[in-house]
Design a protein around this nucleic acid. Sequence first.
DNA 1: TTTATTGTATTATTCAACTAATACAATAAT
DNA 2: ATTATTGTATTAGTTGAATAATACAATAAA
Lengths: 126, 126
Amino acid sequence: MSWDIKGDRPVYAQLVEIIGQMIIKNIFPPDSKLPSVRDLAASAEVNPNTMQKALGELEGEGLISSIRTTGKYVTNNVELIAAYKRKLAVIELGRFIRKMKNLDYNLEEIKDLVDKEVNNGNSFRN
Amino acid sequence: MSWDIKGDRPVYAQLVEIIGQMIIKNIFPPDSKLPSVRDLAASAEVNPNTMQKALGELEGEGLISSIRTTGKYVTNNVELIAAYKRKLAVIELGRFIRKMKNLDYNLEEIKDLVDKEVNNGNSFRN
DNA sequence: TTTATTGTATTATTCAACTAATACAATAAT
DNA sequence: ATTATTGTATTAGTTGAATAATACAATAAA
């Protein structure tokens, strides 16, 4: 996982997304200690305040907790992490279907497009 | 089709999307004359410059052409419109799959989620 | 006890992008 | 010829995010 910050959206929002994915993928496992805000900021090459803002949002979701002078920790509540993953997936799926309907595709056509992508798609991996 | 402008993305970008959809859906049919920039702007309740910027982008795509002092017209090239629709669909599909993979879903799981949504989904319409 | 490291808070500044107001240009309509 | 309507251009203002600098607070580590 690398910090691939684009210029098309707020940096802090992208950090929320990336770190959330890191937790979902167990790159930062449940109950583990995160690097310090300053270290994470240096690693991502962003201002510490920006990183702090992103981590604050994830704390608001309950995925992270802070212990002052000690550090920040990933929640040990694996079900909460799983629920977060599902929540994001539902949002993405809904957004995708809405966009496709706006492009005048019906549900059957959407399903066929996805099936086609999954079958003949250039996916050696997965 | 209504002008449902949100605050989360640039207004002009949303206008490009909406007007593009209107052309794809033949609300603005091929070869038809569009309302004036000022009328469209009033209808969408945006600044004329913002509407002008959006229409300029669609003109860059070739979907619209301008005749000075006369107005703007949808292209008569229906294949170009169809290609535009396909292009946007491919982008959306790619974006969706990428996001889902980032959330640690594999292609099979993605397909299953879409199928499930299409079958039992709350879609009386379509 | 002292020092270093942690999270947190505050304030100001910069910068880019979007929006807005207005003026200009060209020509169809009358 | 005049007027109204069209697209276009220019300039200014507004807004929000990101950065920056700094300070504070708490405690683990030495």
